[in-house]
Design a protein around this nucleic acid. Structure first.
Length: 849
RNA sequence: GCCCCUGUGGCGGAAUGGUAGACGCGGCAGACUCAAAAUCUGUUGCCUUCACGGGCGUGCUGGUUCGAGUCCGGCCAGGGGCACCA
């Protein structure tokens, strides 16, 4: 018998689906809608195993929903702007556009070989002028709606490359490419006003009940809401300074006020005092890298100015400038309470400031409560705090807030960690920000009729800085308002802007506006979004913000873009390291007896732990090679098997071979059975004995797989299918052909979403003219799913001592009697009556001796 | 430092508080074969016993319960997120 030829079969069925336009989705339908979306890829060159896993899961769900009768939107596109194209341009002398679109062509072909049920008519890349033109319109509309503004901001400036760097591109205080020490520089930048929605983005998390708790928690922490009090201090030089605190209860433990080096007051004091100016300079030189921050010691500088305690004008607190106070949070100034804040305590020790505990654990006497190296942040009651003494922390917070508010020296306030979203990038391969700077009119949006602002065809990457800025003509324009000479904004949008609304564009990719309202009303929100957890914060938060912006502009009624979110794990593989600690690729080693050797030698190399496949660790496996070898269905099946989808999966050759054998096994099962089968649609008359058991196996598989797919438990669905295959393989040739046909057809329909090509081939082999993709999802008969006889465990004192077979629904007395009659039970009771017998019908009997 | 998640056979993992180890990988034994591959059958947590059987077992440790992998407390280990956020 011929083996299943995956290569030919897959090519054939892909062509058939294509010809019949099986996956082209109408925007109007009587069916219920279902929008299934996987995070779209960056066109880096080739697809990798992570893509295969992601898109397989989405495809299974899309095909499953389609079979269940939904009108399914399952599109694909390209997150096509970004840095790697510029690097390629610089290194290889190619145009970033050419490089990007060549990659897209390659990767599209690879994705098509996976047999994905995608509506390719909706495909677009974010670098398509059609798309970024719409994004520019949105930018201007957001600007007019007050959601975009321009402001000075501290940025990481690489003086050699002449560009701003993202935080991730600053390594140990140096530019990742130039190696030059990064400077902090104030530049005028564009921001999205995401903080306007801080509270809403936070509270709406509670309603996202189909999101992982983990992601919601991460977003919650990122938004970082804290309630506190803004307190005004009077200074000895006549000025005032506001501080923000979440612990107003500890106000009587204050021993200093500290300002950020970037605080306006610090700047002013520096003008008069060179010592202060030198200190602020030193703080800035320390850099912004994480390593620098982590190891930085607390540093301070006394300004000579003092602050009066809000409750006691005679009590003077020194005003310090401290490097650990951030300008970007709260008011950029704090009051320091060393006894109850570790940072303040470290600082107080260094500068010999008083440490007075004002919150004391309830069981401890205030006089004997000392703070040495560790600040006390636990529960307790107030002490050493005049009118607050004896109060609980909560009561004291309220008391302080009320008194200061009454005096006009304080205000209850909520602060967020979340910052506005800086979207300016000094990058040429991005969506140009459609604004013009005019000497007379200021900032002016590009006129509607002048949109889109297209990127120039040719970009010079030889110089430093942004080629858009150094381009000879591109930035020189006339002001849309006064017509005078003006300059284009040469910054482009952060690529996260591109991906913040693409899901809405998919609804109607031909809409004249950014988002087709009618289509958006029909399709949004995305019912199931699938992607990597690495996007848990930024991308997903930006998309949530953007959707609210779209709502405000009238493009949609929804606030939340993704009703369901699933974050899949990564694909991992063993790593190998040579003697010098260098990573070795799989094709540089031989594996023998569980050990690894340098290829063609006896030099043993270290086998490292399994890590996410990556270029740098050289542990990647090319999906193409696996598809060439075994076919798409095998790699799809592997991605779904064994490991729960949210966890990291380890790629193994044995596993892949096992999947390939399973493909062949199903094919053989069908081929072997063909002579025993009646024609399609044969009626089952009666089934008993082995035939009934097979029917039960089939219907239980339907029920199980359906439930598993509903909950994205692909690994369990796979196990259910193995169980069904085992059951079919076990039956004798003599069982009725119609029953056998039912089991096989069930099997084929159930694997349809997971191994779609094999399913079509089997369906055809079973004599059908239709396609599996056109078939409805099979239905389980409850009568055949239910167990009529049940094996009931019998325990003595919670230990298993035997089992009894019982009809479903047998009464307690019968079960108890049967259990007590068991030999091991009576042996354990040794003639004494049981103290108690617990009977849970259809489950268990536990005899308490 | 703070927050979160995860610990089950040789491995991936399964298990509404109710027979721990479904299903797969790997291993072992056998069948087919001149042989190999492929395939099929059986077997496979650990200890003990010729055997029947018995004992132990879900990171450790207490607890709740007739009954705990599952619930609660404490600890240990691994992974992740945030990180001078006042």
């Amino acid at each position: 018998m011929a083996r299943y030829n995956a290569k030919d079969s897959e090519k054939h069925w892909q062509a058939v689906w294509d010809q019949r336009q099986c996956f082209v989705t109408p925007n109007e339908s009587a069916k219920p809608k279902c929008y299934v979306l996987e995070m779209f890829p960056y066109p880096s060159g080739r697809i990798h195993m992570g893509h295969v896993r992601n898109y397989t899961m989405g495809d299974v769900l899309a095909r499953f929903r389609r079979a269940q009768g939904y009108n399914v939107l399952h599109p694909m596109g390209w997150d096509a702007f970004g840095l790697p194209a510029e690097n390629a341009a610089r290194e290889k002398g190619v145009n970033p556009r050419d490089w990007t679109y060549a990659n897209i062509a390659t990767m599209r072909a690879e994705l098509k070989r996976m047999g994905l049920a995608i509506d390719w008519t909706r495909e677009f890349a974010t670098s398509d002028p059609d798309y970024y033109a719409q994004q520019q319109r949105l930018f201007i509309e957001f600007y007019k709606a007050g959601l975009v503004y321009r402001a000075e901001a501290d940025v990481n400036w690489d003086p050699v490359d002449g560009t701003v760097l993202a935080n991730e591109q600053v390594i140990d205080g140096r530019g990742w490419r130039s190696g030059a020490p990064v400077e902090r520089k104030k530049l005028s930048q564009w921001f999205f006003r995401i903080t306007e929605y801080a509270d809403e983005l936070l509270t709406a998390l509670d309603r996202l009940d189909r999101w992982p708790d983990k992601v919601r928690l991460m977003q919650k922490n990122w938004i970082g809401r804290s309630e506190g009090l803004r307190v005004t201090f009077d200074l000895s030089d006549g000025a005032k300074v506001d501080v923000f605190t979440t612990r107003p209860d500890t106000l009587f433990g204050a021993s200093f006020v500290a300002l950020s080096p970037d605080h306006p007051l610090s700047q002013r004091l520096a003008e008069k005092d060179p010592k202060i100016a030198a200190f602020i300079d030193a703080c800035h030189r320390l850099g912004t890298s994480e390593a620098a921050i982590e190891t930085a010691e607390k540093m301070g500088c006394d300004t000579g100015v003092t602050a009066a305690h809000p409750f006691d004008p005679q009590w003077k607190l020194p005003v310090m400038i401290a490097n650990f106070v951030l300008m970007g949070y709260g008011t950029g100034a704090i009051f320091g309470c060393p006894a109850h804040d570790q940072r303040d305590l470290d600082f107080a020790h260094k500068y010999e400031l008083p440490v007075l505990p004002v919150v004391v654990p309830d069981a401890v006497d205030a006089k004997s409560f000392d703070i040495s190296d560790e600040a006390y942040i636990g529960p307790g009651h107030l002490a050493n705090s005049r009118f607050l003494d004896g109060m609980s922390i909560e009561a004291a917070k309220n008391e302080v807030a009320s008194r200061l508010e009454a005096e006009g020296r304080g205000k209850r306030e909520v602060n967020y960690r979340l910052r506005d979203w800086l979207v300016s990038r000094q990058r040429p391969w991005g969506c140009p920000i459609p604004m013009i700077r005019c000497g007379t009119c200021g900032l002016v949006p590009v006129k509607e009729s002048d949109l889109p602002v297209l990127l120039p065809d040719e970009l010079q990457f030889t110089g430093t800085g942004n080629p858009l800025d150094s381009h000879l003509t591109w930035k020189h324009v006339h002001c849309p308002q006064c017509g005078g000479a003006a300059q284009r904004e040469t910054d482009t949008c952060d690529t996260f802007v591109d991906s913040a609304w693409y899901f809405a564009r998919f609804c109607d990719t031909r809409s004249e506006g950014p988002v087709g309202r009618k289509a958006a009303d029909y399709w949004l929100p995305v019912d199931q979004y699938i992607g990597g957890v690495e996007h848990a914060i930024l991308h997903l938060l930006y998309a949530r913000f953007f959707t609210r912006g779209l709502h405000r502009l009238g493009y949609t009624d929804v606030d939340e873009p993704f009703a369901g979110l699933f974050t899949q794990g990564m694909v991992c593989h063993e790593t190998y390291k040579g003697h010098n600690g260098q990573w070795l690729a799989l094709d540089e080693i031989d594996k023998r007896d569980g050990k690894a050797y340098l290829k063609g030698t006896d030099a043993e190399v270290t086998i490292g732990r399994s890590e996410a496949m990556s270029k740098s660790k050289k542990n990647g496996i090319a999906p193409e090679a696996i598809i060439d070898l075994y076919g798409a269905d095998t790699i799809r099946w592997f991605m779904l098997s064994d490991t729960p989808p949210e966890r990291d999966v380890e790629w193994t050759n044995e596993g892949a071979e096992g999947c390939f054998r399973f493909v062949q096994r199903i094919w053989r099962l069908i081929e072997d059975a063909k002579p025993l089968l009646p024609p399609p649609h044969a009626e089952i008359e009666t089934a008993e004995g082995a035939a009934l058991e097979l029917r039960r196996a089939a219907h239980r598989a339907i029920a199980g797989v359906t439930d598993d797919l509903e909950h994205l438990r692909f690994n369990r669905a796979v196990a259910e299918i193995y169980t069904l295959v085992n059951a079919i393989g076990r039956v004798e040739d003599s069982i009725p052909g119609a029953v056998r046909r039912e089991a096989l057809e069930t099997l084929v329909l159930l694997i349809g979403p997971m191994m779609p090509h094999l399913a079509e081939s089997c369906w055809r082999a079973l004599g059908h003219e239709t396609l599996v993709v056109e078939m409805p999802w099979p239905k389980a008969y409850p009568d055949l799913v239910r167990y009529d006889t049940i094996t009931i465990a019998v325990q003595v004192n919670g230990k298993l001592r035997g089992t009894i077979e019982s009809a479903r629904g047998a009464d307690r007395k019968a079960l108890e009697d049967a259990a007590l009659a068991l030999e091991p039970v009576s042996r354990a009771l040794a003639g004494k009556p049981p103290r108690r017998v617990i009977v849970v019908p259809d489950r268990i009997v536990n005899v308490v001796a």
